[in-house]
Design a protein around this nucleic acid. Structure first.
Lengths: 294, 294
DNA sequence: ATTGAGTGATAAGAAAGGCTTATCAGGTGG
DNA sequence: CCACCTGATAAGCCTTTCTTATCACTCAAT
C-alpha cells in the first residue's frame, strides 16, 4: 500500500534542488543526466504528483516543497544510521567488557590497555578482575565479551586460545635461607611451612603434589597472603605474574623441578559472535600477548 | 563511502527477528525464503559483519543487537514519511488558501465549503474575501492557491476557467416605483439618482454606459451602499449574487436591456502547479459550481 | 535571424539486482 | 531411522537502473 521511497531517489531529488538543475545533480552524483531524469520521473509517477515544475523552469511544485524537508530528514537519518552502523562494524566504536585474573589485570593490562585505547580511541572498555573460575563463568554467561585467564576446566561453551605460560616459583621473605637461590626443586621445600593459595592447585598432579597435601594453611586473599609472608609465617608458591614485584621484603625463586606453569589464554564464548569492537580487542590481544613469557 | 541501507533489506532483517526465522519472514513478506536469505547476506556482506548467528540458531549477533533498534527507527521514519507524502499527494491532507469576491464568499462558499470539508475531512482551508482585483493579484502572487472571482483583466499569468454568470439588476427600496416591476431596461433608469459601486464598471461598454458616466455618487463599501439605498438616497446596480438577499427593504429587479453579466470563474496561476489539496478543491469547484446560474 | 551552449526528455540496449524454482545440508522429534 | 523443520546455494528469469545517442526547446550573443 505504501510506496517505498528509495534513499537513492530521494538523494537525487535533493541534489537536483541543491544544484538547481538535473545536469548539475548528475555531475555531482557521477551519473548521467537521463539517469537522474528517469529516476525522478519514476518517483513522481509512483507518488502520483510531480515534484518539479516541468516546462519553463525546474523549480519545485508546492507538493515538492512539502516533500523536500521530509526527504532531507529521512536521508539524513539514513546517513546517520549508516555511519553509526559502519563505525560499529569496523570496531571504531563500541563497548568491550573484559575480565581477567587479578595478576593479569594489574601486571599486563595497564600498559596493554593504554596502547589499545591509543589505537582505538572510540572504544569504551570495562575491565573486571575475578578469579579464574569466575572469569570463565562470566564469559560463559555473556557478562563479558572476553576473558584472559587460565582455564578453570575444559568447557564446551568456551573457546580457549593460548597466549603465554606463567612459571610457578617459590615466594619467601628476603631473610629466608632460599632468598639468594637461583632455583629450587621440590625436595628442598620439604619441611618448610608452606601456605597454600588459590594458585596452589597448579602443583597438583606434579611431583610436588605431596607438598601441597601436607600444607596446613590456606589463604585465598592475596593481601592477607602477602602480609603472612612478610611476617615470616612461611613460604608459598605463586606464578611469577602473581608475585607482587614491588615488594621489598619478598623474593621469588623459580621452581626448577618440577617446572610448573599456569597457562594464560584468551577465553570467549564458543557459540557467540563477538561484537566488532570485541573482535578488534581479540585481534589486538593475540597480536600483542601471544607467546610472550610472563 | 557510506553503504546505502535499502529500506527493504532493513525490513527483511526486522521481520526475520520478529518472526524468529527466515521462513516465517518470507511467508509474512510474500517472498520466497532464498530471497530473504540472499538479501540479508548481501547486507551483512556490505557491512562486513554478520547480523545473525549462523549455524546453531538464528538469533542476532551483538552487532545485530546494536543495529536492530536503529534499523527499526529508520524504517519507521521511512513509513511515516511515505504516509505523510502519500496523503499529501492524494489530497487527503494539506492546506488550501482560497480567495473570492465577497458576494461569492457569503452566498456560495458557506454551503460549498461545508460539503467540501465533509468530503475531504483532512484538509485545512483559509478563505479570504477581497475585491476582484485583489483576488486576482493574490493568485498571481501565490498568496492563495485559487481564486473565485470575475476576471479583473486578462492576464497571462492567470488561468481562468469560467464557472457561471451573474446577471446584473437594479436595486431599489421597496417603496420605489420600480419595486414591483419584473424587469427594467436602461432607458427606464434615466433620471434616477444612480449610486455607483465597485461592480458598476460591468455596465461600461454596454448601452447603459452613459448612465454610469452621469452618476455623481460612488460608494465602494457594501455596508455603506446598503445603508444609502435603505435610506432612499437612490438606486444602484448589482449582480444578483451581490444583492443582500435577506434585506427586507430592498428589491432586486433584473435588467433586461442591456443584459449585463458578471462572469465568475476559477482563477489559478498559469505556470504554477497546484498542491494536491488545491487540485482536489479545483476539481470539486468545477464539479459543483460550473454552469450553475447565480 | 542564426548559432551555440545550455536545459530536460526519450529510446534502445547493456549491466546489475532481485526474485523464483529446484535442490542440498544440517538438526530435531516422533 | 526417517520425516520435517531449518537455512544455504545455484541457475535462470525478469525487473530495474544505468549509459549512449539523440531530440526538442530556451536563451543569449552574434
Amino acid at each position: 500500500m505504501l510506496p517505498e521511497l528509495k534513499i537513492q531517489q530521494l538523494r537525487y531529488v535533493i541534489t537536483v534542488v541543491e544544484e538547481g538543475s538535473f545536469h548539475g545533480a548528475s555531475r555531482r552524483l557521477h551519473r548521467t543526466q537521463p539517469a537522474i531524469s528517469m529516476a525522478v520521473r519514476e518517483l513522481e509517477h509512483r507518488l502520483g504528483q510531480n515534484l518539479f515544475e516541468r516546462g519553463v523552469q525546474n523549480r519545485l511544485t508546492p507538493f515538492g516543497e512539502y516533500c523536500l524537508p521530509r526527504f532531507r530528514d529521512l536521508v539524513s537519518q539514513h546517513d546517520r544510521t549508516a555511519k553509526d552502523v559502519v563505525s560499529q562494524a569496523d570496531g571504531q566504536e563500541g563497548h568491550i567488557h573484559i575480565a581477567t585474573v587479578p595478576s593479569v589485570a594489574s601486571r599486563i593490562m595497564p600498559s596493554f590497555l593504554a596502547e589499545f585505547i591509543d589505537r582505538f580511541p572510540g572504544l569504551n572498555i570495562s575491565l573486571h578482575d575475578e578469579n579464574a573460575h569466575y572469569v570463565c563463568q562470566m564469559v560463559a554467561h555473556g557478562e563479558v565479551d572476553l576473558g584472559i585467564t587460565s582455564l578453570w576446566q575444559s568447557d564446551e561453551e568456551l573457546e580457549y586460545t593460548h597466549l603465554f605460560e606463567d612459571k610457578v616459583g617459590v615466594v619467601c621473605r628476603h631473610d629466608h635461607a632460599f632468598a639468594e637461590k637461583q632455583a629450587l626443586d621440590w625436595q628442598s621445600l620439604q619441611g618448610e611451612k608452606l601456605i597454600r593459595n588459590g594458585t596452589s592447585r597448579l602443583l597438583m598432579g606434579t611431583a610436588a603434589t605431596e607438598l601441597v597435601e601436607n600444607s596446613a594453611f590456606y589463604i585465598s586473599n592475596m593481601i592477607s597472603l602477602i602480609a603472612m609472608l612478610e611476617a615470616g609465617a612461611g613460604i608459598t608458591t605463586l606464578p611469577r605474574l602473581a608475585f607482587p614485584e614491588h615488594s621489598a621484603n619478598l623474593r621469588f625463586i623459580p621452581l626448577s623441578d618440577p617446572i610448573v606453569v599456569r597457562k594464560i589464554g584468551l577465553v570467549k564464548a564458543a557459540n557467540r559472535t563477538l561484537s566488532p569492537a570485541a573482535q578488534a580487542m581479540q585481534a589486538f590481544v593475540l597480536e600483542k600477548l601471544r607467546y610472550k613469557e610472563g
